[in-house]
C-alpha cells in the first residue's frame, strides 16, 4: 500500500470505524444537529448535553465512510468535558489540519486528532473528515438545522 494511503487509513481510524465510540442516541441531550453530505449520502446526527457552558456528554448516530465515521467517533471522545469555546477552537484547528493549513508545531498539540493529518493529501475526503465537526458546530450554536458539507 502507498504511504499516502497508509497515512489516511491509520490503525486508529480503522479501529474507530469498526467500533465507533459514543455511537448512540443521547436521551438527555439538550442540543442536536443533523449533518448531511448530499454528494455521497453520509449522514450523522450529533447529540450534545451542554451544562454551564461545558459539554457534559456528546454522542452520534448515522452512517458514512471510514473517514467520516472515525472522525465523528474521535471528535466525541475529545470534546467531552470541554467548554464551548474550547470545542470551537478545536473545530478551527481541525479544519486547518485536514486542509493542510496547520503549522507543524500545532499538529503535535492536536493529540489523537493528529491521525487525520493524512486527509490533506486527499482533497476529495476533506468533507468526510469535517462533516461531524460542522454538525457539532451547528448543534452548539443551537442552530438545530440540517448541515450540509456541499
Amino acid at each position: 500500500m502507498s504511504t499516502e494511503l497508509r497515512e489516511l487509513y491509520q490503525q486508529v481510524i480503522l479501529d474507530h470505524n469498526k467500533s465507533p465510540r459514543n455511537f448512540k442516541k443521547l436521551e438527555d441531550a439538550n442540543l442536536f444537529a443533523e449533518g448531511f453530505n448530499p454528494l455521497c449520502g453520509d449522514h450523522f446526527d450529533i447529540y450534545v448535553k451542554l451544562e454551564d457552558n461545558i459539554i457534559k456528554d456528546v454522542s452520534f448516530m448515522g452512517q458514512g465512510c471510514a473517514i467520516s465515521k472515525s472522525s465523528a467517533s474521535i471528535m466525541t471522545s475529545i470534546v467531552k468535558g470541554k467548554t464551548l469555546e474550547e470545542a470551537e477552537t478545536l473545530f478551527q484547528k481541525f479544519h486547518e489540519l485536514v486542509t493542510g493549513q496547520i503549522k507543524a508545531a500545532d499538529v503535535e498539540e492536536m493529540g489523537k486528532l493528529a491521525v487525520f493529518e493524512g486527509v490533506q493529501d486527499f482533497p476529495a475526503r476533506v468533507k468526510c473528515a469535517s462533516l461531524a465537526w460542522h454538525t457539532l458546530h451547528s448543534a452548539l450554536k443551537e442552530e438545530n438545522a440540517k448541515v450540509t458539507t456541499e
Partner: peptide
C-alpha cells in the same frame, strides 16, 4: 463504505464512481 473502496481503488489506478 463505497467511498473508502473508491479511494483505495484510485491508488491502484482504477477509476470507479462511488456514491
Amino acid at each position: 463504505h463505497p467511498h473508502d473502496i473508491g479511494t483505495i481503488l484510485d491508488y491502484e489506478g482504477v477509476a470507479v464512481r462511488t456514491g
